[in-house]
Each structure stands twice: as C-alpha cells, then as structure tokens.
C-alpha cells in the first residue's frame, strides 16, 4: 500500500519539525546539569541546581499550591463538566439550550486575558465579596471554569459515541433508571472521565494568566512564580525545574501509552483466539460499530 512506502522528503520534514519541537527542550535539559551560574555555558557536570531546587522553599511552596489547585480544579471540572456533557448530549432542545452549549465551550476559545479580566471583575465586585475576593479559591474557580469546557467536550463526545441501547438494555433487564447511570453509564464513559481529569489537571498546573490575575500575595502558583523569576534573570535552577517536569510528564505519557498498547494487543490476541476456535470460523464483527438501529 502506498501509505507504507518510505519517502525521503517525508522523513526529512518529520525530522526537521521534531527537531524544531525538541531542540529547545533538550538544550534546557542539557544546561540544567551545569555547575556554573550561566544558563548557556557548560561549566562541568553537577547536580547542584537540583539541590538548589529542593532548598528553594518559595518554589516548593508554589509547586505544592499548584498541585493542590490542580487536583481540586480537575475534580470539580470533571463533576461540572460531566453534568454539562449530560445536559448537552441527553436533554435535547429546551429554551436556552443553545446558550448553554455556547457558554460551556466558550472558555476554550476565549483569550485567557479576557476570561481573567472578567473573573477579576467578579471577584473584586462589592456585591460578590462572599466569594472571598482574589486568592486561592478564586484561582480554583477560574481553573474549574476553564477546564470544565475541555471536560465537557471530551465527555460529551464519549456520550454521543456510546451506544444508547446499553442503557436501554440495562433498563430492559430490570435495572432501575438511577442505578443504570452508575452501573452502566459511568463505567462506560470512565476513560473519558479519567482523560478529562488528567487534561484538566495539566491545564491548571500550566495556567499562568488566570492565576496571575487572580492571585493575591498569599497565592503564588508555580507558573506565577516562574514568570516572576524569568523577569529577574535566567538561572540554571529553572532549567532543573524544566527537566524535572519534562521527565515526569514523559514518564507518565510513556507509561499510559504502554498500558494502552498492551491492552490493545491483549484484546487483539483474544479476538484472534475467539475467531480461531469459534465453531463458525467467521471473522469477527465488532460490537462498537455505529449505532445501526437509528
């Protein structure tokens, strides 16, 4: 097949773009091991800056705060986003449904500066002092709003893909409607919930604009701190931080990918087995084929 043919032009282009994507990151990593003070000069190998990283209380605090905000924002976004996805995928049309659809996904396409500004206006408004003003809670709410949009899209598309007759079959077999949701719907969309949580978590961990606009002196998240430090001059300590983050993310992605691939392989093997010894010997028909009934 033509798609499997190796074309030199294609390879060169792929390599060039990957180089563009990775050279800057690799440079960061390389210079994190310097013993000197200059971010672009290798003055001998040392883990000095990793030690500095751990001793830097301000930074450690910022990391812990970011993790905390990220975890809570991701969890809240999964709850609100799943509910929103249900409304969008299952409630059909009702007055205001179009407005709701627009509202839930708009944070994804609005410039962050605009969202940030709008939320600052909310949190500083005299009528809304009960929300607690700027600070950690405000950042959490802002991140939840932003991440909800992404979770909604993920869960909604999973719900639409989901074969509705699964829920109907459960009902048909005597399962009460409320229970159907927990024993059928949630397990079936679970991968989207997990993916949504992870995406929300990384978005929150990475967000600078909202956090910076909504932070007060006591709520410096990691990106806010990093941004401030970047204005004060470059130090290899930041390189060390970048290296740690890249390493953690790569590890997570590789592990997740492996798990996915091995699950796929196991499944393929089982299918071959099933086909091999099935009395009919007929190739398998996939269950997940498009909903034929409707």
């Amino acid at each position: 097949m033509m798609s499997a043919r190796v074309r030199p032009g294609a390879t060169v282009w792929l390599l060039a773009v990957y180089a563009f994507l990775y050279v800057p990151i690799l440079c960061l990593i390389a210079f994190s091991f310097t013993a000197g003070e200059i971010t672009t000069q290798f003055d001998g190998f040392s883990l000095r800056w990793y030690g500095e990283l751990l001793r830097d209380d301000e930074l450690v605090d910022a990391v812990l705060l970011s993790l905390r905000v990220g975890a809570f924002a991701a969890t809240a976004a999964v709850v609100v986003g799943s509910a929103a996805a249900f409304v969008l995928a299952r409630f059909g049309r009702y007055p205001g449904s179009a407005a709701f659809a627009g509202m839930t996904t708009a944070p994804m396409v609005m410039p962050e500066v605009v969202i940030g500004l709008s939320l600052v206006l909310l949190f500083t408004h005299p009528l809304f002092t009960f929300l607690g003003g700027r600070g950690v809670a405000a950042i959490w709410a802002a991140h939840t709003t932003l991440c909800t949009a992404y979770v909604t899209v993920l869960v909604q598309s999973r719900l639409r893909e989901m074969d509705r007759s699964l829920e109907e079959a459960a009902l048909d077999l005597g399962c009460p409607p409320f229970k159907v949701f927990f024993v059928i719907t949630v397990p079936v969309i679970a991968p989207a919930l997990v993916a949504g949580w992870l995406l929300a978590f990384t978005l929150s961990m990475d967000d600078f604009v909202l956090a910076a606009m909504l932070s007060d002196p006591g709520s410096t998240t990691l990106p806010v701190l990093v941004f401030a430090r970047l204005h004060h001059g470059l130090k290899p300590e930041i390189n060390a931080l970048a290296t740690v983050i890249v390493a953690l993310v790569s590890l997570a992605v590789v592990v997740a990918n492996r798990a996915m691939l091995s699950a796929q392989r196991k499944r393929a093997a089982a299918l071959r087995h099933a086909a091999g010894i099935s009395p009919t010997g007929v190739p398998n028909v996939t269950l997940g084929s498009p909903d034929i009934r409707r």
Partner: peptide
C-alpha cells in the same frame, strides 16, 4: 509540559 518553560 510547561508552556512558560518552553517560552523560557
């Protein structure tokens, strides 16, 4: 990975 650090 971090957006800020990639700009950095």
């Amino acid at each position: 990975t971090s957006f800020l650090l990639r700009v950095y």
